[in-house]
Design a protein around this nucleic acid. Structure first.
Lengths: 336, 336
DNA sequence: GGTGTGGTTGAAATCGTTTTCACCACAGGA
DNA sequence: TCCTGTGGTGAAAACGATTTCAACCACACC
């Protein structure tokens, strides 16, 4: 709770407020001896600049916001946890915006933030492109696991394609050939990529794609249940199922258990995400781990660069973070 | 993005900036016709006061923070969702602090917030009393579902006692007499109250308390599993179980299902919280609903009053929000 | 008709920074 | 010697609100 002002620091050092301000914002242009003297006194008396005065005179933007479409979903809750940790470390206020999958709420939050001259916004998967586009015109933006059309926005995402492909190839190596897929929503690029990974893995093993083995889900638990119900109506069951996320995989797992269908004895199962939260089930799910800390760290770094204006301009517009297959207890090798 | 200043509004209305400011902060003291004229022009041109200028001149604190100890827990995620919604409605920036059940993190967050002259902090259950005490000395505080020693801090909580009591009495009315209890952590007052409710309900029905029917949990899914395992080792099983929260109840439910023990045929089960998230299981849990929206609204209102300084001073230091028993599919009536 | 009185309003200082502009001293070139 | 550029610094004007203080105008009352 610093009670000192820039003027007082100036007086203590026998210099002017202007110079102290320069030390704060542009240290290089003040002569070394004086600069050090000022820096020392600031440290000694525990001076902290008043953020409101700063922002009033420099019309610069400030603060970060994070948009997630469903904070009750542990994947996004995890992102909130990481990003808010990083922001706090840097002493940057973060506003968390849970849009509840509601475009009107996105609009209201965004208006509010723009009015308050927010410095940057990080969008997680699930936010509408309208909102992102509008934000982009007024402030810095970074996407996590969300693709924009033409790489106009910086984005950080998991390697959804290879993660999915690796998972399905793992099943293929275990001699599975009849592999079901529980997909995500059609509009979500990250979900689409997982689908591509699924298809290409099959192709690589000369297994023909079979539409009846695909069940469209919405990433929530229930759609995993529904998917499993659907698969069991088929005259010939799949021997393995790959789900576009853990929640649906667990829905499927739960459904199977209730019907006394054994996983992995009767059906093998792989998820995607590896949310720690989901160790709640006593069967350890085999899944593709997304490196959420890394994802968040990258997104945050890019944002900081943008805000600081370190525009090497050649910067990668798109960063891909590798995934990792985590072997659990839900897959088995077919003898055939 | 309002480009108007208070001075311009004044000019448009043929008055002075001072008066416009008064309309903003203290409308009553400016004569009705002038006030309305100013209000209208502000509306017309879409004027929004510059928050930084405001905060610079009025040395008042500003902004809110919300502490939760585990944002991955849907109960707290729900609180984050509600409070951030309310804050945004009022145009107040909210900083969400997920302390990850770590006292060091609490300290860091708090230091940061106090440095930034935060206007108020809302603490949810699970934050250490040290942190709350320290915060209380420098800023406004409100607790949700967290009791302070002597009512020094305003607090809003669910009617844990009566909610628990009602649940257990419901079981008693269904002729259950051997009722197990899965408790929460010892230090949590809200969990303790649920325990008291359990005990008093038994007493009211002349059922003697039996220590072996109590299993201590930590509110997480796993401890529900453990509790169920424990109960099943008893020579005589309980015919019903009341769990101090939904997560543990679902752990117990899941364990039972895996062991082919039917709920409610073999054992009845009641939870506490009614997190919408948990409709994920296809069996609808009978549970005591906490009115989270109301809880949050109350806490928020109290905070706003404190910030505004409307200290009727006679204000209730403690508000209790009623709970409601939600009948699901996990309880049955014993014939005996 | 003078004197309060209370309700409204405006002028001006203030909050703590940033930033522009002018100034100075000194170095280097003509 | 004079002129010009340059790096370092200070004075002072913003930034956009709040707040104090004084002025003003009825109006009523003695």
């Amino acid at each position: 709770m610093s009670k000192y002002t820039i003027t007082e620091i100036a007086k203590l050092c026998g210099t002017s407020p202007a110079t102290v301000s320069r030390v704060l914002n542009n240290p290089d242009i003040v002569a070394a001896p004086l600069r050090e003297k000022i820096e020392n006194t600031m440290r000694e008396v525990g001076y902290k600049p008043n953020p409101f005065a700063s922002r009033l005179s420099s019309k610069s933007r400030w603060g970060l916001a994070l948009f997630v479409f469903d904070i009750l979903n542990p994947f996004f809750a995890m992102i909130v946890r990481r990003i808010s940790h990083l922001a706090m470390e840097q002493g940057i206020p973060l506003t968390v915006c849970d849009t509840e999958n509601n475009e009107e709420k996105e609009r209201i939050y965004l208006d509010y933030l723009l009015d308050n001259k927010i410095g940057g916004i990080i969008f997680a998967e699930g936010i509408s492109m309208n909102t992102i586009e509008r934000a982009r015109q007024y402030t810095e933006t970074v996407l996590i696991d969300r693709h924009s059309e033409e790489g106009v926005v910086s984005e950080v995402s998991s390697d959804n394609y290879n993660g999915a492909r690796q998972a399905v190839e793992y099943l293929l190596q275990l001699n599975h050939r009849r592999i079901g897929f529980i997909s995500g929503p059609a509009k979500w690029p990250s979900a689409e990529e997982r689908f591509r990974g699924y298809c290409d893995a099959l192709k690589a093993y000369d297994v023909s794609f079979n539409q009846e083995l695909v069940s469209r889900g919405d990433l929530r638990f229930e759609s995993g249940i529904n998917a499993m119900e659907y698969f069991l109506t088929l005259s010939e069951w799949p021997t393995a199922i790959f789900s576009a996320n853990d929640q649906m995989a667990l829905g499927a797992l739960n459904k199977a258990k209730l019907l006394n269908i054994s996983v992995p004895e009767d059906i093998s199962l792989i998820g995607f995400d590896n949310i720690p939260y989901y160790t709640i089930f006593n069967t350890k799910l085999t899944t593709v781990e997304q490196n959420i800390p890394e994802l968040c760290q990258c997104a945050f770094n890019i944002m900081m660069k943008k805000i600081r204006g370190d525009n090497t301009d050649k910067e990668e517009k798109r960063i891909i973070v590798p995934t990792q297959l985590k072997i659990g207890e839900t897959c088995r090798k077919l003898i055939g």
